[in-house]
Amino acid sequence: MDMEVVGKRIQALRKEHKMTQQQLAEAIDISEKYLSNIETGKDICSIHVILNIANLLDASVDDLLGSNLKYNRFHTPANGAYHTRLINETYALSEKECAHLLRYIELMKEHDKK
């Protein structure tokens, strides 16, 4: 399991919810240091912790584990390295950045149709 990817997703969701590490850690009853280690991929967390994080941040376990799940790895529309990298990078984007990226994609598609 790529814990760095999971950690980045957790961090991005936490920031979307405008929470500090301390606030999230207290809310799910773990230490701030442990959460920091999870977010940097230095520590592996239990399913119990993953469930608590997912529930608190209004996410699914699938959102957090993403490409680590066998189903997601083999059932993506384009199973290439660029596709996987793009998906992983978007988890760290803000809502505003995602909106810009989607607009850029729309413009590229419009350009390609011409």
Rank of each mutant, 00 (worst) to 15 (best):
V5L: 13
I10S: 05
K70W: 04
L13M: 12
K96D: 13
G80Y: 08
Q22E: 15
S60G: 05
G7C: 10
T90L: 15
V61L: 00
Y104C: 07
S60E: 09
V5S: 13
I47D: 00
I10M: 11
I10K: 02
Q22F: 05
Q11I: 03
L86Q: 11
S46H: 02
N72V: 06
E4W: 06
E95Y: 10
I30E: 01
H17V: 04
C98L: 15
L64W: 03
L35N: 02
E26I: 06
M1D: 06
L107P: 00
Q22N: 09
Y71P: 03
I38C: 06
L24A: 05
G7E: 11
L101I: 13
K33D: 00
L107C: 08
M108Y: 07
L56M: 04
T84M: 14
Y82Q: 14
D112F: 03
I10D: 03
E39G: 07
H111W: 11
R14V: 09
D112N: 08
M108H: 05
R85I: 05
S46P: 01
I28C: 09
F74V: 08
L35V: 02
D58V: 00
E39F: 04
L57H: 01
R14D: 02
Y82H: 12
K18A: 10
T20L: 02
E106S: 11
L101P: 03
K109A: 11
Q11S: 13
E4T: 13
E39Q: 08
S31V: 04
H75P: 04
V6T: 14
I30N: 01
K18P: 01
N68S: 08
M1C: 05
I87M: 14
G66A: 10
L107Y: 11
H17F: 13
H83A: 15
K114G: 08
L57V: 02
E16D: 14
A92E: 14
A54S: 05
Q22C: 06
L102A: 09
Q11A: 12
I38N: 03
A12R: 10
N37V: 01
E89S: 15
P77C: 04
A54M: 00
N79D: 14
C45Y: 01
N72P: 08
D29A: 15
E97Y: 06
L51E: 09
A54D: 00
K18Y: 03
V49N: 04
Y104M: 11
I47M: 05
N88H: 13
E95C: 04
L93Y: 13
G80P: 00
M1I: 10
K18T: 04
G80I: 14
A78N: 14
L86E: 11
S67C: 03
A25C: 07
T40V: 08
T20K: 03
L24C: 06
L65R: 03
C98W: 08
G66Q: 06
Q11C: 09
H100Q: 12
V49R: 00
G80T: 15
G66R: 05
S31Y: 02
S60W: 01
S94Y: 12
Q21C: 02
E97D: 15
N79S: 13
H75R: 10
K113L: 06
Y104G: 07
D112C: 03
L13V: 06
